[in-house]
Every structure is written in structure tokens, then in C-alpha cells.
């Protein structure tokens, strides 16, 4: 479904601040895979997500979604393929517009926007039904501006918007990082429910190892712009935080070993 073929991205090229965010990264995801992505700050996981979404242009390599090469497409022309939820709860919805307007905007994602006016009763009923499934009491508040909602409500709404029209790929960029633990759990539960219900191909970046282990059927760990751990199937199911930490430390030992060799 998603093929990331040897993409590289270097920020501030040829300056003292040169930063190789991605170095010839390759990742191939099958239809229906739910991949969790972890890694430290600056490991390149967000850069990868932004490259796939079209926020950043890559220096080289190709990005193919369901057979379509989107490498050169601008952000808004990738929208037909991709549903996105951001880290910042303010980012996913238009705060000055009502819940129903936001849902309507999402229902037209990737379609030509015509001069058809307003919302039909049928559309409103459909939105109500969908909001009802979130179980956050938003179904009675269709005309409320999303700027008045809590962070958790907004993230749940953004999730709903991202999946209102089935996306070929769902990108979740640390979408629970800005929420309190209880709300984060609610939003993760909703995430899991929606992803399973629609069997969505999903890439979820997170800082939380536990979430990365418990969710999804594949886990990749980023370090220095590369994928250093890639677990799926039985290996992923039997993973624990301790095991993952152990693997990560082994990697770092290896790096230190490298450094020692270079210095000796």
C-alpha cells in the first residue's frame, strides 16, 4: 500500500547546521498494516511522516501510495490518499468553524469542491451517527465551533474527519502526546476501534513505547534517520518494554563500539 523507496532528506545542506534527517530510508507497508513508529527526538520519524504527507519535499527517492507515485505531488493533492491527525489538537480542525462544517470539509477531502450550497438533512444525520460512535456527546453539538472543544474531543473529531472518507493511508503524528494520560487512553481506544473497523493502513508515530508495543501489528524504531528495528508477526506480539529497551541498548553499544574503533 505504501512504498517508501530510499528517500533522503538533509536540512541546511552544506552549512555547519547540516542535519541528515533521513538517509536512504526504505519502508514498505502492506494493505491493512498498522505500523507503530518510535524513536528519539531527531531520529527522523516525524520527517518521514511529513515527507509522506507532502509537507516536506525529499532530496531523492520515491514515495508510492497504492501504485501511484506521489513524490512530486503537493500536499493538497496527496489528500485524496491520506488522512492525518496531528500532535497539536489545534491543527486538525478549523477552530473558527462548526463541527458540522469541519466534517463537511473532511467529507469532500480529495474531491472537487463544487458550488453546491449547504448541508442536507441526510448529511447531518450521517455526521450525528458518526459522532455518536465516538461516545463523547458531540452529536448534539453539531453547530458548536471546534475551537470551544477540549483537546481530546478535537483529536477524536480529527480522527473521525481523517477517516470519514476511507483513506488509503492514515498518518498519526504523536496524536496523543499533548493530552493528559486519561484522555490519551480514550483517544487511543477510539483510534484502535476506527482502524480495526475500517482495516486501515496506518502509520502511527509515538513517543510512548508501551503504546507502540500494544497497538498495531508491526513496530519500527528509528535512529539517526534510519530504521534500526523492524518487528512484526510473532516477534511483535511477544515484545515487552524491557525487551525493546534491551534491543535499543544493544544498538547503542554497537554504536559505541563503532566509535571506539574509529578513535583507537
Amino acid at each position: 500500500m505504501l512504498d517508501i523507496i530510499n528517500i533522503s532528506k538533509t536540512f541546511n545542506k552544506n552549512t555547519v547546521n547540516e542535519n541528515k534527517a533521513l538517509t536512504s530510508l526504505a519502508l514498505s507497508i502492506k494493505d491493512g498494516d498498522f505500523v507503530t513508529v518510535i524513536g528519539g527526538n531527531g531520529s527522523g520519524k516525524s520527517t518521514m511522516l511529513n515527507a509522506v504527507a507532502g509537507v516536506l519535499a525529499v532530496d531523492c527517492g520515491r514515495i508510492v501510495i497504492d501504485g501511484a507515485d506521489v513524490t512530486r505531488l503537493p500536499e493538497h493533492r496527496r489528500a485524496p490518499y491520506i488522512g492525518r491527525v496531528f500532535q497539536d489538537p489545534m491543527m486538525g480542525t478549523a477552530g473558527g468553524m462548526s463541527i458540522e462544517e469541519n466534517l463537511a470539509l473532511a467529507s469532500w477531502r480529495g474531491k472537487r469542491r463544487t458550488l453546491r450550497w449547504g448541508l442536507s438533512k441526510k448529511e447531518r444525520e450521517f455526521y450525528c451517527e458518526k459522532l455518536n460512535e465516538l461516545d463523547l456527546g458531540l452529536e448534539d453539538r453539531l453547530t458548536v465551533k471546534t475551537g470551544l472543544l477540549s483537546g481530546g474531543q478535537r483529536q477524536a473529531l480529527t480522527l473521525l474527519m481523517a477517516t470519514l472518507r476511507r483513506p488509503k493511508l492514515l498518518l498519526l503524528d504523536e496524536h496523543t502526546a499533548a493530552l493528559d494520560p486519561k484522555t490519551a487512553k480514550t483517544v487511543l481506544d477510539i483510534t484502535n476501534k476506527i482502524v480495526e473497523h475500517h482495516a486501515l493502513t496506518t502509520l502511527m508515530v509515538t513517543h510512548n513505547m508501551r503504546d507502540a508495543i500494544h497497538l498495531g501489528n508491526r513496530l519500527v524504531m528509528f535512529d539517526k534517520g534510519r530504521i534500526v528495528i523492524d518487528l512484526q508477526g510473532e516477534n511483535k506480539r511477544q515484545l515487552t518494554v524491557e525487551k525493546l529497551l534491551g534491543m535499543f541498548e544493544n544498538l547503542n553499544d554497537f554504536d559505541e563500539f563503532d566509535d571506539k574503533l574509529l578513535l583507537s
Partner: peptide, 17 residues
């Protein structure tokens, strides 16, 4: 509505295509 969304939240507007 798309024009209004652009002014309200440009990042979201782009994500919605």
C-alpha cells in the same frame, strides 16, 4: 467553505485537500 477553512487553519485545509 474551503476558502473559509484556508483562513481559519491553513494546515488543516491542506490536509483536507
Amino acid at each position: 467553505t474551503g476558502v473559509r477553512a484556508t483562513g481559519s487553519n491553513i494546515k488543516m485545509a491542506k490536509a483536507q485537500g
